[in-house]
Amino acid sequence: MAHIRHNYEGGDAVLDAARDCVLAVGVRRTTLTDVARRAGVSRMTLYRRWPDVRTLVGDLMTREWIALAVNAIPPAAPDATTRARLVDGLVDGVAAFRAHPLFHKIVDVDPELLLPYLLDRRGASQDALLGLITGTLAEGHADGSVRRCGPDLQARSLLLVVQSFAMSLRTMTEPDDPGLTDAAFLQELRTLLERTLSP
């Protein structure tokens, strides 16, 4: 699984501590001192790797989102095409992302953290997801289950679609309308992906 590399031992413990702090008080109220105390390391240890909380939270988001994506895509199986695996993985990944407590906390308390990755530039997690999608598309091209297209264009287009469902779905749902629930939209996402990926 893709992961963040750290310059010292205990990097995962620091990210775990950062996650706990953010879930408790949000990003703006989290300090490196709080994280260091919770992780059991010195502040200088953190400052050598992360100059500020936003950089640390960026690495935390990368770790969490990549883990979701990797775990969402089913392993290869004789009775499943690559297209089916990819569609299942992308739909399940969107559902898992939307249910993730870190995503909920950031959207509710510090949504501006996500704007640069939607409007200005790709983040490390988006690049990692593109690599994962591109590799799976290549398998689908090879077994004939996925429509052939330039792999970079196809992967980026898929990421744009699933990213919009993951980030903006709650602006379109209606809790009192059974036809406009999360589940209904995820089924529609499945249909969109199936149709665009079918040869």
Rank of each mutant, 00 (worst) to 15 (best):
A124E: 12
L197V: 09
G26P: 00
R49F: 01
D143E: 12
T33K: 06
L56Y: 06
L160F: 14
S198G: 15
L129H: 10
T62D: 01
R156S: 09
A36N: 02
H6V: 02
V35K: 00
V94T: 03
M44H: 15
T45P: 00
D52I: 04
E139F: 01
T30V: 02
A2S: 09
R48L: 10
A76T: 13
E64L: 07
D127G: 06
A124F: 08
T196Q: 14
G11Q: 05
T191H: 09
L32G: 07
G135K: 11
F185K: 12
L86A: 08
L160G: 14
A39I: 00
Y47N: 07
S198Y: 13
L130V: 12
H141D: 12
T136N: 06
G179Q: 10
H104W: 09
T136H: 08
L153I: 13
A128N: 10
A128G: 13
T136Q: 09
E112R: 14
H141W: 12
T196N: 09
L180E: 11
D34K: 08
N71M: 07
L114N: 10
R190M: 02
G144S: 07
D16E: 15
G93Q: 03
R63Y: 03
G123Q: 05
A18R: 00
L119W: 10
P151L: 07
L32T: 04
S198W: 15
L90P: 00
H6S: 13
V57C: 05
L86G: 02
L158S: 03
